[in-house]
């Protein structure tokens, strides 16, 4: 591991100042991804700013059912919170489907959002990778791409975002509260995450010193009718090969509103707006769900070894929405 300076700031302002002043600094919270990547030589910060002691660990439920989740709330505390389980089951289910008991105890909410791809080329410093070393190339298209993206990728990079939690947050229209050198602002998840394009090394719109202090989830009245389902290569403790977070409101026999986000198929949690638009106003039937998800996936660009993700994702979407609405399959 490359030597680094270690700082333990006394407050958010000091953390932001430290992070902004030193190029190549990293904020450390749970560390379950950062410390691992530092061991692998993928992350080589000169300064590690430990934000673990800043508090930021409260879950506040507002009267409308919205949530403000402190950046340092541990994954396990959030997953088991009674209001989260009641108001947004997909959020709790996504968290509980991720990692292991040990990792969920250590990993934080904001850290989960900012974890890096598990693409094997990214994690292996002996291999080229446009994300790790811009311009060095990408062996994935001709190589190991079974777990990689079918949506939103580019010629430079088809890495997937590994988080389960972020998929459920995308479906819930969550925002992140950020404190940076220029003050505070909020970003929708869609504004936080960038697609790779020609610059896969830029994954988020966060600038040096920008610190996520909280995740804000607006009230979702039909969030109680939501679910997260994850398909993986083994029953537990594995990343998704396909996942779906969905919430649906059926009133008077038609879909009044619906939220669908897809995981493990794109460089960011993939909000399926096209499928949602296709479903509003329709009767909730398995064939309508299938047509909607197929419209979403029509823009996919699969490769030989990850094309299976298209029928798999479609099947999981149909299955989750059918279960939530009681539609027969």
């Amino acid at each position: 591991m490359k030597p680094f300076r270690y700082a333990r700031p006394g407050g958010v302002a000091e953390a932001v100042r430290s992070g902004a002043e030193q190029p190549g600094s990293r904020f450390l919270a749970g560390g379950t991804n950062l410390v691992d990547l530092m061991k692998l030589g993928v992350e080589r910060p000169d300064l590690v700013v430990d934000v673990g002691g800043l508090g930021l660990d409260e879950i506040v439920v507002d009267s409308g059912g919205g949530l403000r989740i402190g950046a340092n709330v541990r994954n396990s505390d959030l997953a088991v919170h009674p209001a989260v389980r009641r108001e947004l089951p997909m959020l709790s289910q996504a968290l509980l489907s991720g990692a292991s008991g040990q990792l969920r105890n250590q990993a934080t909410a904001a850290g989960n959002l900012l974890q890096r791809t598990r693409c094997v080329y990214f994690q292996d410093v002996s291999k080229p990778c446009n994300k790790r070393e811009p311009g060095s190339g990408c062996p994935a298209r001709q190589g190991d791409h079974r777990n990689l993206a079918v949506l939103g990728g580019s010629a430079a990079c088809i890495a997937t975002h590994p988080s389960d939690f972020a998929v459920a947050l995308a479906a819930a229209d969550a925002e992140v509260a950020v404190t940076g050198p220029a003050g505070e602002r909020t970003l929708r998840l869609d504004e936080l995450y960038l697609l790779p394009g020609e610059h896969p090394e830029r994954e988020t719109s966060l600038a040096p010193g920008d610190l996520i202090t909280a995740i804000v989830v607006p009230p979702l009245p039909f969030g109680t009718t939501s679910a997260y389902r994850k398909v993986r290569d083994r029953a537990s403790y594995a990343f998704a090969v396909a996942s779906v977070a969905a919430a649906i409101d059926v009133t008077d026999g038609v879909v009044r509103d619906v939220r669908i986000a897809l995981g493990a198929v794109a460089p960011k949690p993939w909000r399926a707006h096209r499928a949602e638009d296709a479903l509003r106003g329709l009767e909730p039937t398995a064939s309508a769900f299938r047509a909607a998800v197929e419209a979403e996936l029509s823009v996919a660009e699969p490769l030989p070894d990850n094309a299976f993700k298209l029928p798999l994702t479609a099947n999981v979407v149909v299955s989750v929405l059918s279960d939530l609405t009681g539609a027969s399959r």
């Binding site: 061991k39 673990g52 040990q102 105890n105 250590q106």
Partner: peptide
């Protein structure tokens, strides 16, 4: 040594965690 096997599990403030992914200084 990468948080994948659990052989290093200890309790930190009473909670199980992977000691290999925690910097001692924290």
């Amino acid at each position: 040594d990468h948080g994948q096997c659990g052989a290093c599990t200890v309790l930190l403030d009473g909670r199980r965690t992977n000691a290999c992914l925690v910097l001692a200084v924290t």
